[in-house]
Amino acid sequence: MIRELKFLLSLWKTNLAAAMEYRATFITQSLGMILNDGVYFLVWVIFFDRFKDVRGWELADMFIVFGIAASAFGLVGMLFGNAFNLSEIITGGRLDYYLSLPRPTLLHALASRVVPSGFGDFLYGFISYAASGQFTWDGLARFVLAVLLAAAVFTAFLIIVQSLTFWMGTGGTFTMLAINAMLTFALYPITLFNQAARVVLFLVVPAAFMGAVPAGFVKAFSWSTLGLMTLAAAGFLAAAILLFHLGLRRYESGSAIQTEV
């Protein structure tokens, strides 16, 4: 465990050095992303200016939800950048490299890339929380914890969706669809959805754990919410690791899985 942690740390250090090699990219992408997120959020400012609330869901809630989702999304990009293109790695036969090294394959693959704009998203999440008008110091501590757990669920979801590539042979477009579904559902007021839809948002596309649930926790501490989030993170991660390793048995080093796209 300690050894793997040390390994991760040195990977991240190398990643950081690589990001600094392309610092112009790193800085412009991060600043650009903060601006991008800010402008995008204006849509909700305009919406709630006109309509006040959606079944009790208000602009302040939007600020927090948006903050959680942006920070979690950015954090995954910074620490596990390859979580967004695991599917390509599988179809391209590039898992060979990670399989040939004496380190946990999945962990190594995930942490071997940094999405340069991730830092911008991560930072913007905090700005969004600070701007919500509900900022408190212990709220900030809960925000950080909530972001970590949301990022864990998001990473697990990305792994699950892309592990299906082992069986389907292709997966790029499907992954894009799944990421969009996750983000969209996380960012829209959860009060919109009926019971059936909510079951989906907790169990199938676990967007509730990237939006409404952690947002509720940031607003007010509750043991049961914390328990639920921890359980979700652990459960989805376990499922993800299991599915990935089941799929790995079918991995054919890109020789049989030929991508047609």
Binding site: L16, A17, E21, R23, I27
Partner: peptide, 18 residues
Amino acid sequence: TKRKAAGLGASLRSLVRP
């Protein structure tokens, strides 16, 4: 072209002064 320095420290320095 930009000159790229080796190592993390040097990279951080040239972040400010490329």
